[in-house]
Simulated scan of single mutants.
Amino acid sequence: MKRLWTPAWIARHVAMVVLVTSFLGLGWWQVSRAAAGNAISWGYAVEWPIFAGFVVFVWWREVRHTLRGTPPATTGEAESAPVPALASAPTGGPDGSADAAGADGPRPGFRRPVRVARVAVGDGADDADLVAYNRYLSWLNANPGAKPGDYPG
Rank of each mutant, 00 (worst) to 15 (best):
A81S: 15
A125S: 11
F110N: 06
G102H: 00
F110M: 03
G102V: 02
P108C: 07
V83Q: 09
T74N: 05
G105V: 00
P108M: 07
G92W: 00
T75G: 08
A98L: 14
A120H: 03
G124I: 01
G109N: 07
A128Q: 07
S97Y: 11
D104Y: 06
P106T: 02
A81P: 00
A101Y: 02
P82R: 04
V83H: 03
D127K: 02
A100G: 10
A100H: 07
A78V: 08
T74L: 15
R118M: 15
A125E: 07
T91Y: 03
D95G: 02
A78T: 14
A85S: 13
F110R: 01
A85G: 14
T74Y: 08
S88C: 10
R111E: 03
D126I: 01
A89L: 15
R107A: 11
D99R: 12
A103F: 09
G76S: 08
R107L: 08
V119Q: 15
A89F: 04
A128W: 10
A78K: 07
P94Q: 07
A120F: 04
P84S: 08
L86Q: 12
D123F: 13
G122E: 00
R112V: 07
A89E: 11
R107T: 01
V116D: 02
G93T: 01
S88I: 01
P113H: 05
A73V: 14
A87F: 08
V83Y: 04
V114K: 03
V121P: 00
D95S: 14
A128H: 11
A73D: 15
